[in-house]
Design a protein around this nucleic acid. Sequence first.
DNA 1: CGTTCGATTGAGCTTTCTCAAGCACAGTGG
DNA 2: CCACTGTGCTTGAGAAAGCTCAATCGAACG
Lengths: 239, 239
Amino acid sequence: MLSPANHNSSLLPDTHPCNGCDARDLAICGVLETDDLDTFRRLGCSIDLCDGQSLFHQGDAATRVFTVTLGMLKSFRILADGRRQVTGFHLPGDFVGTSVDQEHQFAVEAVGKSRVCAFPVNRFDGFIEEHQPMQRELYIAATRELVQAQQQMVLLGRKTAMERVASFLVLLSDRLGHGSVVELPMRRSDIADYLGLTKETVSRVVSELKRSRMIRLRAIERTEILDRTRLDSLAQGDG
Amino acid sequence: MLSPANHNSSLLPDTHPCNGCDARDLAICGVLETDDLDTFRRLGCSIDLCDGQSLFHQGDAATRVFTVTLGMLKSFRILADGRRQVTGFHLPGDFVGTSVDQEHQFAVEAVGKSRVCAFPVNRFDGFIEEHQPMQRELYIAATRELVQAQQQMVLLGRKTAMERVASFLVLLSDRLGHGSVVELPMRRSDIADYLGLTKETVSRVVSELKRSRMIRLRAIERTEILDRTRLDSLAQGDG
DNA sequence: CGTTCGATTGAGCTTTCTCAAGCACAGTGG
DNA sequence: CCACTGTGCTTGAGAAAGCTCAATCGAACG
């Protein structure tokens, strides 16, 4: 198993105060009756994570499934020499760790203070076995993620640095923007590793976007989109 | 809708001689009883495609689902200015066009002579609704594809040209290699658009791999892997 | 008020791309 | 049977986007 040197995350404690999940943050709540939802909640165990804390590493046994209930997580994969690719950011309602393999193919860590709800796989599988609508919901979630992953392939394979950053801002604005303000809780290096760039290039491009008045930085983690139209067309690759 | 100028594929005829599918090439045959499989076969309609012929374009209404029964298909997305990203190659047994959206997000074309089995979505959905094991099978297929897509993100975001080509050869060797010989029915430009490179770079890297005796070209579309170990470690990023 | 850690900016370098020419092979018609 | 032509592959030379390394900046915190 890989265990990169510059890895400051601590392992997840195996036992943890178990206080159930907040139903509102479970993605599947929409397809479950109140009783069933209650049953489902009780299968899980809430876990708090602080910034950079690891939920699991690549190669770990896939013994639990998670839903994000608070904050943000990132999943990534690391090559032998330390090169890292962030494959996604996960928000409340997202499933994490639903692998068909015995081992996790990717690592998952918290971005800022976060909370997840953990389900032992056997209990989780047992539950969805008995709840058809949830099976379908999981399938739809996987398919959506797949389309998202394919969009990301286009970005990584064919877009310029500026188009990548524009796409990223537009994506986050759609997922967690309040009006024209986008929260960026992750580090520049996380963005860089998500976009297949270096943190320096991300920094330079953000500066360029500021200079051309498409965005403004309220704070380092609070970006305001000033010209959504131009940012959109940049993101689409016809800017 | 995008319709790039240099696009020589012809549209799929709406009506076509319907002669059913070969059961052996349907991915799901493993989870269906003989009777059910027979029923399933009859829902579909076999379609032959010649090289470069389009199954559907991005933006087309998603009215049918397909399984590949012969040959190979590629799915891809094109940006406004013609830049193209191939997101995957599909072999017999693979599902294609199983979108949750009303419109296809990606285009699919044949690589060489190919054959698919087409199912109207409503009939397809109706069938899987009544066959639990198939739902599960579809979910597993989607999850596998997702992991594969994430691996591809690592490749596109963080690997060098040489590592990308090595990864590609290893991948294809695992999927359709006979011993150490890999069939490459697609064009160099398809490989390039899959790996986020130019066809010139792919050509140069292949030449370099030949020069360093890791591979040998029996014919242009028949590559023999001479040093699998070295190619593997290159592909993993620690060569 | 100093320290620390991440973000920014700069200068030079490397990898890959672009553009262009030449090559190989299959299909076609004289 | 062989030149002709078209298409895709290869190779080369110069250009460009983004990377690396290094210095500086700036906010948070003790």
